[in-house]
């Protein structure tokens, strides 16, 4: 890639720029700044849309009583039961049970606090789920 080919598109960098390796007129490699590349923005959007779809689905499930608020927070933090298990030390089978609204409603605060700590959110937001205005950080 030549220096003049380094893309300067609006992208996902929010005004930052990244370092790209490109060649000057003599074929010498330099580090050049790039404001972003449309291509990476498209790929990033595809990945984020999958995450957003999971969050929206979880919010619907919670709203319609099919899942507990935990399912919503898990999606917001890009986690599945396995990753949340690693963060909390709670077995993933147990976490899966806690995704059921009836089970979640009976959980003691002591256990819920472990989830809240893992996400870094307040216990009250954890209990409220999608209606709490709580988004991923």
């Amino acid at each position: 890639m030549k220096v003049h080919q380094v893309p300067q598109d609006d992208s996902i960098l929010e005004g930052h720029s990244r370092a790209c390796y490109a060649q000057d007129g003599n074929g010498q490699y330099l580090i050049t700044k790039s404001r972003g590349w449309q291509v990476e923005a498209i790929a990033n959007r595809q990945a984020l849309s999958d995450v957003e779809e999971k969050i929206a689905q979880a919010a619907r499930d919670v709203g319609e009583g099919r899942a507990s608020p935990l399912a919503f927070h898990m999606a917001c933090f890009h986690m599945n039961a396995g990753l949340l298990a690693a963060h909390t030390g709670i077995w993933s089978l147990r976490i899966r049970r806690h995704l059921r609204p009836s089970v979640f409603a009976r959980l003691p605060d002591r256990l819920l606090q472990r989830y809240a700590n893992a996400f870094g959110i307040a216990l009250s937001s954890l209990k409220r789920g999608p209606n709490s205005g709580q988004e991923a950080p």
Partner: peptide, 8 residues
């Protein structure tokens, strides 16, 4: 999504 993952 698989393809986007490679590009990312």
């Amino acid at each position: 999504s698989h393809l986007a993952n490679v590009i990312r």
